[in-house]
């Protein structure tokens, strides 16, 4: 399949037709992965010798934190596609993804707080990672609020994509600034390509399954929400046409 043919899915009609078929598949896979990963992680892994059973919240915390960042990246890419190629589905996909990303950020923050309480003795600390996630959440809020505030869909798509680009730069800057501003409590990355730094294998494999589950869940949700956005958009267009007579 050439790259050219990839763009055919940018046609709303084609998108609706295609996702009609693949959406159930993604939904089922997401549920299977999540159930397997979480059950495996929660009930069939040993307790950590230092952290006890609290470590098991990692199966929610790490995937949601990963998604929180990657959803923003996906929005950045779709925003760029909208700016360059002006495919409406791309802009609507970014719009559809934002609330999911915001929820992922909240899950990551909440599970982090629940984990942090027994470990660090505090629900919240102004640790660089925690703070950056809070700032990321604010960016999500601003982005969603801007979409909601503008009536004209094309104007909203243009403005939010530029906000997404500018916001990405400032989010990166904030990440660096926050690191500079305070040294953290947070442990290093739980996953990395460098095997030595990884969590032990018993925790690693169920974690991978959970991450796959979160990714699939996100894909399913974003497809579903994009379909809704397309239909809502089409409904508004039909109504407007009717008003015009």
């Amino acid at each position: 399949m050439s790259l050219n043919s990839l763009w055919q899915y940018a046609n709303p009609k084609k998108f609706i037709q295609t996702t009609e078929k693949v959406l159930p598949l993604f939904s089922v896979l997401a549920v299977v992965c999540l159930v397997v990963g979480l059950v495996w992680g929660f009930f069939f892994t040993p307790d950590d010798y230092r952290q006890g059973s609290t470590v098991k919240i990692i199966y929610l915390h790490v995937p949601s934190a990963l998604m929180a960042i990657n959803v923003w990246l996906m929005m950045l890419v779709t925003s760029l596609i909208w700016i360059v190629r002006r495919h409406h589905v791309s802009a609507l996909a970014a719009r559809a993804a934002a609330p999911i990303g915001a929820v992922m950020t909240v899950i990551a923050l909440a599970t982090g707080a629940i984990w942090g309480q027994p470990m660090w003795g505090t629900w919240w600390a102004w640790d660089p990672r925690l703070t950056s996630f809070l700032i990321l959440f604010l960016f999500y809020l601003g982005y969603i609020a801007l979409w909601e505030a503008i009536e004209n869909d094309d104007t909203a798509a243009d403005l939010t994509s530029i906000l997404c680009l500018v916001g990405s730069v400032f989010a990166l800057l904030s990440r660096y600034a926050v690191n500079f501003w305070n040294q953290g409590l947070h442990q290093g990355a739980s996953l990395s390509l460098d095997k030595e730094e990884n969590v032990a294998d018993v925790f690693y494999f169920p974690l991978l399954v959970c991450i796959a589950g979160f990714v699939l869940l996100f894909v399913a949700l974003v497809l579903l929400r994009t379909r809704t956005e397309i239909r809502a958009r089409r409904m508004r267009a039909l109504l407007a046409r009717e008003r015009m007579g």
Binding site: L138, G142, L146, S174
Partner: peptide, 8 residues
């Protein structure tokens, strides 16, 4: 919109 951009 502006306050998060002011953070750095």
């Amino acid at each position: 919109l502006v306050l998060p951009l002011y953070v750095p």
